[in-house]
Design a protein around this nucleic acid. Structure first.
Length: 488
RNA sequence: GGCCCGGUGGUCAAGCGGUUAAGACACCGCCCUUUCACGGCGGUUUCACGAGUUCGAAUCUCGUCCGGGUCACCA
């Protein structure tokens, strides 16, 4: 038998903010579709007119584009089952709800928000969702009268009172919930828009979505969806609920990732210097593990290796340390050219006009940084010699002290002055040659040179690289300055 | 609180009735070395607890505890 084409959808609501939890859901939806030769759909769920954020849809497009999650159908590119923005489909939903009313599976509710609020405060927990089903069995005539007189209303789903509803989830297995736990949820709001829960079911069916993939915060409301599918006589999709990504709270506890958890928004992470491919790779592994335990994956490699049975059930804590490590791996894996291209904006931050030996700079930075944003801080010493202490010249391991530092600098200066071809290699050969001639450890010579040139105890790169980047003139100047500092 | 779902080192995790319980991040030490980093080698730290089933349990069952999710005219 011919298998139906797999179709998944990413259905964000445009809040202007995309945190890694949303992104990860989108990623898995993409991976499930693509690994099974299916179709990935983007649908915008903007049924909450009150919380609409202008420009938020662009954030979604931009994010998906940056990480390479290309959708096959969506508002911007169209498709067979459009429109793909729920506000543009507004008229589709109500007839379905009315059909349910006619069949006795839903009903009009005229309760005011005030009444509902009072209900919540009073008899808490007496009814599922806090609603007392006041309008559930209003007489027909009464309903018609209220409808005609234009009293605002919502349409609610009539939940069964007895029995239970069982559904199957690919990750979590079979889950049963007592029907008495289910609230008579609102399907159509008083502004005429559908609720998320309703629009979701209708659209997923109309758009032939085969796999409903979402965070497991929806696990307990899934029976309501199921009942809807059954009421319409529609095929129930395959449910794939994902373990939640957790963020660390200030008190050390963890909870579902949200805006409160510092910079877990995609944009924030980018700003902090994390690469899109790093973020994708890392979050792919938050809740999924490949058969062979590999860790480094490009997006196409993820598609190739992804399988639903590798998804785990337990929540995962978002860990910046590991993210940072991944970022370092990606930076180190770059070609020299690619690295320089990425680093240039940060180079220019420190040296806006000056032409430097970018290649040498890149060579010392590439193995050392985990984020490009670290660059400016690491290279300012090249622009301006820090005010340093002569204590820096003392180092036990290289047997360097104040006295021999003076001697070494005095020996190095003329040798360096001789050099015309100011490159790492030439400087290297000259200094190593000098150390040999003086019969001292390389470190004994190189330590004071490095300190004088950099003015810092800890530097990226060694003495030769620093001299090479500094240029001959500046190098000599700094070495002489070192001598001065040492009172020589 | 009711309901639902989880629980393998600090974190991500492999494991699917018999393993010395993988691997990665982090941490520590050593090597390399002119500092730092990279790289290489090594180390510390784990099956939440209690009963059962079984010749044998991290793996199966039950209970307890702990954690999370959810209970909106939000999604």
């Amino acid at each position: 038998m011919q298998q139906k084409t797999v179709r998944t959808r990413f259905a964000p609501s445009p809040t202007g903010f995309m945190h890694v939890g949303n992104l990860r859901t989108a990623l898995y939806e993409y991976l499930i579709a693509k690994s099974l030769g299916g179709t990935f759909v983007l649908r915008i769920e903007d049924t909450d007119q009150e919380r609409l954020v202008p420009g938020a849809v662009d954030v979604i497009y931009k994010t998906l584009e940056k990480v390479g999650l290309k959708h096959d159908e969506g508002p911007d590119i169209g498709g067979k089952f459009g429109p793909y923005i729920q506000s543009e489909r507004k008229d589709i939903y109500k007839p379905y709800a009315e059909q349910l009313v006619r069949e006795g599976r839903a009903y009009y509710c005229f309760c005011t928000k005030e009444r509902l609020e009072a209900l919540h405060e009073g008899k808490e927990g007496e009814f599922p969702g806090g609603y007392d089903r006041h309008c559930r069995d209003l007489p027909k005539e009464e309903v018609e009268r209220l409808l005609e007189s234009g009293v605002p209303y919502v349409i609610r789903q009539r939940m069964p009172i007895e029995g239970s509803t069982t559904f199957n989830d690919v990750v979590y297995g079979s889950i049963t919930i007592e029907n008495k736990e289910l609230e008579d949820q609102i399907l159509i709001k008083s502004d005429g828009y559908p609720t998320y829960n309703f629009a979701n079911v209708i659209d997923d069916h109309l758009m032939h979505i085969t796999h409903v993939v979402r965070g497991c915060e929806y696990l307990t409301s899934t029976p309501k969806y199921n009942l809807l599918y059954q009421a319409f006589g529609w095929e129930v999709p395959t449910y794939v609920h994902l373990p939640l990504i957790m963020g660390k709270n200030e008190d050390g506890s963890v909870s579902k990732l949200s805006k409160r958890h510092g910079s877990t928004g995609f944009e924030d992470l980018m700003k902090e210097g994390y690469l899109p491919q790093t973020i994708i790779n890392y979050i792919a592994l938050l809740g999924w593990c490949p058969k062979d335990n590999r860790e480094l994956f490009t997006l196409p490699e993820l598609v190739e290796n992804f399988s639903i049975d590798g998804i785990s059930k337990s929540p995962a804590v978002f860990d910046y340390d590991k993210l940072t490590w991944f970022n370092g791996e990606y930076i180190r894996a770059m070609s020299e050219e690619e690295f320089i291209q990425n680093a240039m904006p940060y180079f220019k931050e420190v040296f806006p006009d000056k032409e430097m030996n970018w290649k040498v700079l890149a060579s010392i930075l590439q193995p050392r940084i985990t984020k490009f944003t670290q660059i400016p801080e690491m290279i300012v010493f090249l622009k301006e010699l820090p005010d340093y202490s002569t204590d820096f010249f003392v180092n036990k391991k290289s047997k360097t002290n104040l006295e021999n530092s003076v001697q070494m600098l005095k020996e190095a200066l003329p040798v360096l002055e001789e050099i015309n071809d100011w490159t790492v290699e030439v400087i290297h050969d000259a200094l190593i040659g000098l150390a040999q001639k003086l019969e001292v450890k390389n470190g004994t010579l190189l330590w004071p040179v490095r300190i004088a040139a950099a003015g810092m105890l800890v530097t990226p790169g060694g003495a030769m690289e620093i001299l090479a980047i500094l240029g001959k003139e500046e190098s000599i100047r700094r070495l002489r300055l070192g001598l001065e500092k040492l009172g020589a």
